[in-house]
Design a protein around this nucleic acid. Sequence first.
DNA 1: GTTCGTTATATCGCTCCGATATATCAACAG
DNA 2: CTGTTGATATATCGGAGCGATATAACGAAC
Lengths: 197, 197
Amino acid sequence: MLELGILGLLKEQPMHGYQLSRELAEQLGGMWKVSYGSLYPTLRRLERDGAVEQVPGDTAGKGRRKLVYRITPEGERLFLRLLEEPPQEGQAEDARFRVRLAFFRYLPPETRIRLLDRRRAGLRERFDQLTAATLAAADDGDEYQRALMEHGRAATEADIAWLGGLIQQERTKYGITAPVGERRRASATLRRKERTV
Amino acid sequence: MLELGILGLLKEQPMHGYQLSRELAEQLGGMWKVSYGSLYPTLRRLERDGAVEQVPGDTAGKGRRKLVYRITPEGERLFLRLLEEPPQEGQAEDARFRVRLAFFRYLPPETRIRLLDRRRAGLRERFDQLTAATLAAADDGDEYQRALMEHGRAATEADIAWLGGLIQQERTKYGITAPVGERRRASATLRRKERTV
DNA sequence: GTTCGTTATATCGCTCCGATATATCAACAG
DNA sequence: CTGTTGATATATCGGAGCGATATAACGAAC
């Protein structure tokens, strides 16, 4: 994930580590502050793999040493690969998707829609799971467990709706029609919930 | 965090590792699926530190081996310490707080309110930061960066309101009056946002 | 009876974090 | 002029958690 962020920034202009950490925090609205303990080793790794290289810069003798890196053609390929990489279940994916979104401009509209859709499908699964958990906790959970589930459920629902808006916006802008299977999908569990609660 | 979850479950009844992983996923509504690569080493660590111990159980010769653990008095103390531990900035705290909530019933109402309040203060800081980032992105960010900020901002706002509800509920239930400083707090950045947008 | 899914423990390599160390430089105070 | 502070900049350490994988015992289904 950090590789994606670094490459995405270097795609715009060469930078050094410290600058990368600030830019990353800014692009993500402060939702992710990269640790130096991740950043510098990752830069090394990317350099080792030929995805970035140091700019031979004029650092000779001058001021404070700065190791400026730039992306290589190999790095460009890696960047696109990471951007489309299949999601990997779990809460790590939430952060990953945010980083992806920050660099969505580098993808063609069809791919963007595909990724948004894939993400939405994942959230719908989580929503169903949370709905089941909410119903289960209604019986034997305590007050805070119920609050936890219901809040998670509401937040996930909001995320799904948000993605729907982004998809719609993308489609109208590029005149792409929705696939036939795409009508207002309601999960079995959701329907049950709406009926019983 | 995993330590907290394990101890919280063992507080109710002795369990073995596999059972812990299922229970944890269930109590958190599937929002957190514990990896075995974390679980078993953590159990070992807790045992080494004297926070849990194996139940000498009747596993002798019988069926499939199960290593059943129970919490010790030392573990009980650790549990309460972890439950109140100061938050540590960053997205890891989101998950931590969820785990804490799942075991909030073990805390007295005043402490619960204090922790909820502390969490809300942290989210308000993030909200201010996101508001600033939103304004900055309105100028030079692309479409998706703006969407990212605004969504993060909305989600954080919803979380803050949710916490407010929980605090209110706790106060009315136990008849605790709100401190004097506690009126509808609006941050400087929020007020600016409301005026200009 | 064998194959498959679930239960159960364990380990490996990896990513990332938080704390910390160590410099350089600018700005400002005394 | 000197000293201190704060921002810039790179680096490393130990630890937490993950995902994949190995292993094995058991139940049930075929």
